[in-house]
Amino acid sequence: MLKESKYPYFLVLPSLIFLILLTIYPLFYALYYSFHYWVIGSPVIFIGLDNYYFVLTNPLFINSLIITLKFSGIVVAIQLLLGLAIALGVSGIKRGQGLICALLIMPMSVAPVIAGIIFRYLYFKGTGVVHYFLSLLGIPLPPEGILGNPDTAFWGLVVTDVWEWTPFISLIILASLLSVPSDIVEAARVDGASSVKIFRHITLPLIKPTLFIAAMLRFMQAYNTFDIVYVETGGGPGTTTQTLSHYLFYEGLVYYRLGYASALTLIIFLIAIVVINIYLKFTIFRGGE
């Protein structure tokens, strides 16, 4: 390896300075107000760690944490598996692969807010296409509509997120599938190995790093899901779909409980870092990147 010890730092410097400037102030701002009581029209009162206590003992927070982790875990799992299936399918198609890729990238290019609005329109009882077709197929649907029923609303959001991001994941997986050296695969096939064996022992280990990274990136995005919740369910029915981001939005930008929201932000961030670290350790031990 070439050794120029100062060189890499210069390369990293521009982006680093930029990002430091963009994160220092918000970090201190949030830190400062997290120790104070402050709502609109009130004086700023120092209350120490009270905000943190209020957040951690608030059943709404616990609820949204559980829902967020549940949601993120489920959508990432579905997107990985489905994405893998799609990537495997597309990888075998010779003609029109480029066109298919271009088509598949389209759901991702729909802003999440817009996707939420679209799916809300699709889920409408009676007049929404999804609801209509599901009822034609004889699938029992709750009378309050898909988004109005506490059990199905969550899955309605899951479907929206899966729709938006699965193609993207599948393209990433497709990329790594295509980078599997074809000569090894050919050699194995010549030796008489079945497709399944080839996949398990050759392909899968090679694409594992990509899978882990894709899962991680997606999890980080899903953890901060806000747009679709805001538009499709408003966190409801009740609080059955309230994600952390949505909860934070309300505390910070609707109620403007700025002190409380600052503490909440930091807690959300810390939890995310912990989860990701656990994930990284887990995947490193399993022979990932």
Binding site: Q97, G98, L99, C101, A102, I105, M106, S109, V110, A111, I114, I117, I118, L171, L174, A175, S176, L178, S179, V180, P181, S182
Partner: peptide
């Protein structure tokens, strides 16, 4: 929504060769 979807889609379609080529990068090794 159509406008929001269309413009990135057009860009992706224009650059779809790179999409595939980028994906093929490894295989070309």
């Amino acid at each position: 929504s159509v406008f929001i979807m269309t413009i990135p889609a057009i860009i992706f379609i224009i650059f779809r060769r790179y999409l595939v080529r980028g994906l093929m990068l490894g295989a070309a090794r």
